[in-house]
């Protein structure tokens, strides 16, 4: 039995505590926005926040999230549904193509801007290098992060 909070809602999950957070949120909680990409912390598609810090949920056991606050892509908009500035910027710059990696990209970008309101190109490179976009939308992601930085 693992107790945690997901997107502000307390949850009790009766599954093997070794189960990666990725599969717990997808299969147990039906939060499908977080994506499986590599299963080995190599691509960033599964990025979520645990207590505000970005983690790769595909290799993070549920036990690590015990008693903590997990935030997924479904949980970053305001309670009234207003999109996060990063999401708005993603639309403005028409970032996604296939879109599969974008939940992870957005979660990494949100975490970056929380700690660094005015990231340089090098800061963005460092913070985002763990997220692969196979459609190659890196220039748009960078531009969108800079736009969002002005709003956050």
């Amino acid at each position: 039995m693992v107790q945690l909070t997901v997107n502000g809602k307390p949850q009790t999950l009766d599954i093997d505590p070794d189960t990666p957070v990725l599969w717990a949120v997808r299969e147990q909680l039906g939060l499908n926005g977080t994506k499986f990409g590599c299963g080995a912390s190599l691509c960033g598609a599964c990025t979520v926040h645990i207590d505000g810090e970005p983690v790769r949920s595909c290799v993070t056991p549920l036990s690590d999230a015990e008693g903590k606050e997990v935030t997924t892509i479904e949980g970053i908009a305001a309670p009234d549904g207003a999109l996060h500035a990063v999401q708005e910027a993603w639309i403005k710059h028409q970032v996604p193509q296939c879109g599969y990696c974008q939940s992870g990209q957005i979660m990494s970008a949100v975490a970056l801007l929380k700690d660094n309101a005015d990231p340089s190109d090098a800061d963005i490179d460092t913070a985002m290098a763990g997220n692969v976009c196979r459609c190659g939308m890196y220039t748009r992601i960078k531009a969108a992060i800079k736009t969002a930085a002005k709003e956050v």
Partner: peptide, 20 residues
């Protein structure tokens, strides 16, 4: 603006892997 983009920024876009 592409019609498929809004769903791809809030986690609601349904890919094959999201079938229920």
């Amino acid at each position: 603006p592409r019609v498929d983009i809004p769903a791809k920024v809030d986690g609601t876009a349904k890919f094959g892997i999201d079938a229920q």
